[in-house]
Design a binder for these strands. Structure first.
Length: 430
DNA sequence: TGGGGTTAT
DNA sequence: ATAACCC
């Protein structure tokens, strides 16, 4: 029947943070100049630590008594107890100064403090109502705080990008990936923008066409246009049932959510690329011999890059684009297959062991798409290595992995001063 | 529109 | 394994 409360002397190893009351930081656009200057101390995080969360627990002071005082302000400066049956279940701090404790009997309380004012707290309705409001405020303010912190992090990321690489860029800070991407370009060179939750609908509404929604590409746009949809509003208000008939339930739900700015897709750390490819386009390629020659060029290039990367591909893919006067672009076809394990082994060593078998595989893939006894006309060839697997010992989550330069580890001649200038296990923050 | 790249089915 | 999507 009572919200938990904590009653403790202030310990001397902690101190209250100053000024919670007046700190109404307003998120909005944040100039990098404003944020460039904050500084601070260095936190060291043990490698492999899972300490990446900040938990804030809030604990209201004598909740029931506060609610009563809000409803009847005259009680503010008086000792007040909230009574349920024969118990004073909680009381305000004035009453506590006078010796009243939680769950004291009414008789004991009156004895201790005859001036104690008692209100009946057996009907929980007003407390429940206030409780709903508390969670709503927490939700709202939590978002607010996250956005403020997000804008500081964005500023730090841009600072780091500039200091370390000399690159400038924009950033968008919002409650999900879709929105942050959409808002990031609002102010264009080298600025950042925070999207307030209230402005979310204005943002998606400001898009002049469905094709501007990230996630709705060329094909989907065409299909939506056939349904008569062109504005974001059109998509928002379109019948979900009919949309699902056209695109399937999953796609329909997905893009309709996007049209409202809803996006629950998780953020994934990107790290190094998941595939490496090389492609070339040309006016015409129509004989098997030519194809083989092009493929050998592409492959040589890729082999070079993959050996610098250090990882080994387990899948290989060949992509072609056939000439066609209508539907001029984007009809690509591809075939892929696993790379035999005995070929994979030979990757780090001199590449020439690997070329012949791979060309053989690629030509087989080619013949799966093109009947070579018939005339053909290609305008593009592409070779792709994917399903890249790290060498042993360099584990994919490790810090070293992400700090590693693009050159492969070499067994000889690596001096200690080649090692990164950055302290590996210290992160500077806020 | 070239040369990448990732994700959904 | 392949098409669709994105920048």
């Amino acid at each position: 029947m009572e919200f938990p409360e904590e009653e403790e002397e202030e310990p001397d190893w902690l101190c209250p943070e100053p000024g919670g009351r007046e700190s109404h930081a307003a998120p909005g656009r944040v100039s990098s100049a404003t944020l460039g200057a904050q500084s601070g101390h260095i936190k060291t995080v043990p490698s492999g630590s899972t300490a990446h969360r900040v938990i804030v627990h809030t604990d209201l002071d004598c909740f029931y008594a506060q609610v009563e005082m809000i409803h009847n302000p005259e009680l503010r400066d008086k000792p007040l107890g909230v009574q349920q049956k024969y118990l004073v279940v909680t009381c305000n701090y004035e009453a506590r100064r006078l010796g009243i404790q939680k769950l004291m009997s009414v008789r004991d309380a009156k004895e201790k403090c005859p001036e104690l004012v008692l209100v009946n707290g057996e009907d929980l309705t007003q407390y429940r109502e206030m409780s709903y409001k508390v969670t709503a405020v927490n939700l709202h303010d939590d978002m607010h705080i996250r956005l403020v912190i997000g804008s500081q992090i964005a500023a730090e990321m841009r600072e780091a990008m500039y200091n370390r690489l000399g690159l400038t860029g924009c950033a968008g800070v919002a409650s999900n990936k879709l929105l942050s991407k959409l808002v990031s370009g609002t102010f264009k060179p080298n600025q950042q923008t925070v999207l307030l939750p209230e402005s979310c609908q204005d943002l998606v509404g400001s898009l002049d066409h469905i094709s501007k929604v990230p996630g709705i590409g060329y094909k989907t746009t065409k299909r939506l246009e056939l349904l008569g949809l062109s504005s974001v509003r059109d998509l928002q208000t379109f019948s979900p049932v009919i949309l699902a008939k056209e695109l399937g339930v999953s796609m329909a739900q997905h893009i309709q959510k996007l049209s409202y700015g809803d996006d629950d897709s998780p953020v994934a750390a990107s790290g190094p690329p998941q595939s490496l490819s090389d492609e070339d386009s040309f006016k015409k390629c129509s004989s098997e011999v030519e194809v083989k020659k092009k493929i050998e060029e592409l492959l040589a290039n890729l082999l070079d890059r993959i050996s610098k990367d250090g990882r080994k591909p387990h899948t290989i893919r060949l992509t072609i684009r056939k000439f066609s006067s209508t539907n001029k672009w984007f009809s690509r076809e591809s075939r892929q297959c696993p790379i035999p394990s005995h070929v994979i082994q030979k990757f780090g060593t001199g590449n020439s062991d690997v070329v012949a078998p791979l060309v053989g595989i690629l030509m087989k893939l080619f013949r799966k798409m093109i009947k070579v006894e018939m005339p053909f006309h290609l305008t593009l060839l592409s070779v792709c290595f994917s399903n890249l697997k790290a060498l042993p010992s360099l584990t994919k989550g490790s810090i070293g992995f992400y700090l590693m330069r693009s050159s492969p580890p070499s067994s000889s001649g690596k001096k200690m001063d080649d090692v990164p200038q950055v302290q590996v296990n210290s992160c500077s923050f806020i």
